[in-house]
Amino acid sequence: MALDTPQKLNSMGFAKDPADTRVLVAMSGGVDSSVVAAQLKSEGYDVVGVTLQLYDHGAALAKKGACCAGRDIHDARRVAEEMDFPHYVLDYENKFKDAVIDEFADSYLAGATPVPCIRCNERVKFRDLLETAKDLDADCMATGHYIQRFMGDQKAELHKAADGDRDQSYFLFSTTQDQLDYLRFPLGHLKSKAETRELAKKFGLPVADKPDSQDICFVPNGSYAAVIEKLRPEAASPGEIVHLDGSVLGEHKGIINYTVGQRRGLGIGGREPLYVVKLDADKRHVIVGPKSALATTTFPIREVNWLGDEPFDAVSERTVAVRVRSTRAPRDAIIRPTGPTTATVELIAAEEGVAPGQACVFYDADGTRIFGGGWIYRG
């Protein structure tokens, strides 16, 4: 009697026909997620598109052309109609405000430099929306992020995108293993954004030439201070600009207007070039000093999300590459765990502008794999 031949895995990694594989696609209304939905639909998958309404489109916080704004919901719906698959809009305003916007404002008021896009992926898209996908009996959830998922010897692994200029691994480091098992990233292998737009034209999508969104979705024109002052009116309280040596150099109009590493706009001319080196929210002090004072070699991290093959604190130290800002290349470092989700990071070469509230993302020192990361805090 002949043995049954194992069925070949489809492109989403399931041993069944695409038509029997339901994929929920998180659609922001931009070209990337639209191409993902169109590509999967063209391959015969049972596609369901979902767009999140994250904030009041008529409020002052909304920004035309930003992720998940009113026009984007309209564009996502048009793509679904063109490609003939169901599309739903979910009201996540309260979830987004509680999980992302409020923490963003509070972190800034505490003198930190938050990265709300990471929290949005972690707490809204990859948590609440992923659970919705499961409720809809989807086999997996696909997004338009530029990052890659490979099956390793032990489990699914997260890897940098093929296009280094589009790689979004810094913003996805907090993806848990359970989430990674369920997620798919169909664009991660593309070599350039031009390839994505060519696919959009191939499918005749109305968003093929739509510009990319540049700013944080709820921050109009990149003005963090304006948003925080609206959310927390007390945030514009004045205070002193203080040199590291203790001398008072002037007055500021609210620490929300300053970030670590800032040089311009301090209004304290007459001395050597000075930079913001620290924000003391309790005293309402903007502390400045020479550029050399920005150099950091050691700092603590917490809320570590570890995607390695053994427990994070199974060894006393690990040599990895770390990225402390999305715009910087990974640098060699030593991670010394101090618990299951805490550690001290030692940079082999000092970095400037390392600030509380930023993410520290771990990479394979010799490859493309992401091992997770943690949040920098003031120890």
Rank of each mutant, 00 (worst) to 15 (best):
V124Y: 11
F362Y: 07
E122G: 05
A350M: 06
V361T: 07
D165C: 04
R71Y: 10
P206N: 06
G254H: 14
A314P: 00
A69P: 03
G270Y: 08
A194M: 08
I255W: 14
P273F: 08
L187Y: 00
V115E: 13
N10D: 08
H57C: 07
C360K: 12
I216Q: 15
L231H: 14
T113G: 03
E43V: 01
N10R: 10
E351V: 02
Q53G: 01
L54G: 00
Q168T: 05
D137E: 15
V124L: 12
D139P: 00
T338H: 06
H87Q: 15
L347Y: 01
P356W: 08
G188N: 04
R78N: 14
Y92K: 04
T51P: 03
V304A: 06
A281S: 15
P300D: 09
T297P: 00
Y55H: 15
G308R: 10
E272I: 00
S34M: 02
L158V: 04
V31Q: 08
A208T: 02
I256H: 11
E81Q: 15
L130K: 11
A194I: 03
V23Q: 04
N257P: 04
F299C: 01
V354T: 02
A194K: 14
K63F: 12
V227I: 11
D32S: 09
H285D: 06
R166Q: 06
V100H: 10
K41T: 11
G70H: 11
R318Y: 15
A99H: 12
A226V: 11
R263S: 01
P116V: 09
D282H: 15
D163M: 02
D313Y: 06
D165S: 12
P186C: 05
K160F: 01
V35Y: 00
T342A: 13
Q7S: 13
T5P: 02
K201E: 08
R369P: 05
L231Y: 13
G188L: 03
R197T: 03
V322E: 06
I147D: 01
A69N: 13
V89H: 03
D102P: 02
E103A: 12
L279E: 08
V50E: 00
M12N: 05
D245T: 00
I268V: 02
P238V: 07
L249D: 05
R77Y: 00
T344H: 10
Q148I: 04
E240V: 01
T296D: 05
T344E: 09
G265S: 05
D366K: 10
P238Q: 13
G250Q: 08
V47T: 03
I335S: 02
N221D: 09
E352F: 11
G204P: 07
P220E: 11
